[in-house]
Design a protein around this nucleic acid. Structure first.
Lengths: 191, 191
DNA sequence: GAATAGTCTGGTCAGATGCCCAAGGCAATC
DNA sequence: GATTGCCTTGGGCATCTGACCAGACTATTC
């Protein structure tokens, strides 16, 4: 028998709200997530939303930043495991396609970029997350002999996000077409 | 004295609605554009919106596709003029940064990708526009000795969009850091 | 001048929105 | 058993939402 105090249940509801908020942002778009839709999907009364969070926007911010943080950590783990540079690039892009959970979470990333355009607080927190990811990516590139690792990491990170967006309208984008080009992007310049 | 028939005024209002709709999508996000906000900004009564368009969504679709079409035509013109491959890449990315109008319109492009995820009709029309742009880009790359021009064009287009998104949170992204990496992406693979 | 056709107004409708709060719940502590 | 502290409910508030429409306006055609 598990003891479930009020505080436990509260933490649970808070978490469930954050998770379903992330889902709904990708499904409906950031601005279309409403208190009531969110509460219903989370199996909770609407009033609870404003008990656990100061505002709906604050909830969406927390939800988005949490998921983005998870997503970037996951990506870091991928290329950290795969030792050679080529394999790392392959694995990174492949994982974006294969896993539906990852794929929808990456749409959330794009939504968050756009929302960051309109929300100062969100922008600075997102900047920090992305900057840290790029530093690790740059370090990994440098360790594997890539040239101008910092600039390459910036562009590579942007490319990965762009590919996620483009997959919506471009079915040609799969591992075998993309990987060789990415390899060229990360390689040393031709003599 | 210019003759302004009723039909002329009508066409004018229709155009003004489309233009301000595009503005508002980038400012507020797709789902946050409402009939009344749009009408007020366009200097028009709310009722007019549903006279000229069957629904608000249809208006937003038309507005977005129109602007995206303009944006892609503009980009095509840029790299068509700049004969060498390197110069073309430079000019393409530089123009995205320099011109504020172009820069906001490119945020509209990202909003449209995400909206296309939820709107079948929008998705197919956007796919067609992007596919045509990529074909021209691939042809241009091929003419300038790039390898695997089709795949390269797909990834390059995604990279450009990704860079637009990332500029929001990454101040390092400017012409001088990005251009060399793009050049590597488009170049022939090292022997 | 009458008829026609396209454009526009102002208002209405039912429903959704974010946020708030008094009242009740329940487990831990005294 | 009383008290304390956190969680939860259900309803209410003012405001906004997309869509609709009867009627007015105006330039063109007869």
């Amino acid at each position: 028998m598990v003891r479930r105090t009020a505080a436990d249940r509260g933490r649970d509801v808070r978490l469930r709200l954050l998770n379903t908020a992330a889902e709904l942002i990708t499904e409906l778009g950031w601005a279309a997530v409403s208190t009531r839709i969110l509460a219903e999907r989370a199996g909770v009364t609407p009033g609870l939303v404003h008990y656990h969070f100061p505002s709906l926007q604050a909830l969406l911010r927390d939800a988005a930043l949490g998921m983005v943080s998870d997503l970037l950590s996951g990506a870091e783990a991928l290329f950290d495991e795969a030792r050679p540079l080529d394999a790392g690039l392959d694995v990174m892009f492949a994982s974006l396609n294969a896993d539906t959970a990852t794929s929808t979470r990456s749409l959330l990333l794009a939504e968050t970029y756009l929302a960051a355009n309109r929300d100062e607080a969100l922008r600075s927190e997102l900047s920090a997350l992305v900057a840290e990811f790029q530093q690790r990516l740059a370090r990994w590139l440098a360790e594997h002999g890539a040239s101008t690792p910092d600039d390459t990491a910036s562009v590579l990170a942007a490319t990965l996000d762009g590919l996620l967006l483009h997959r919506v309208v471009n079915p040609r984008l799969n591992s075998s077409t993309v990987a060789p080009v990415l390899r060229r992007l990360a390689s040393a310049p031709p003599a």
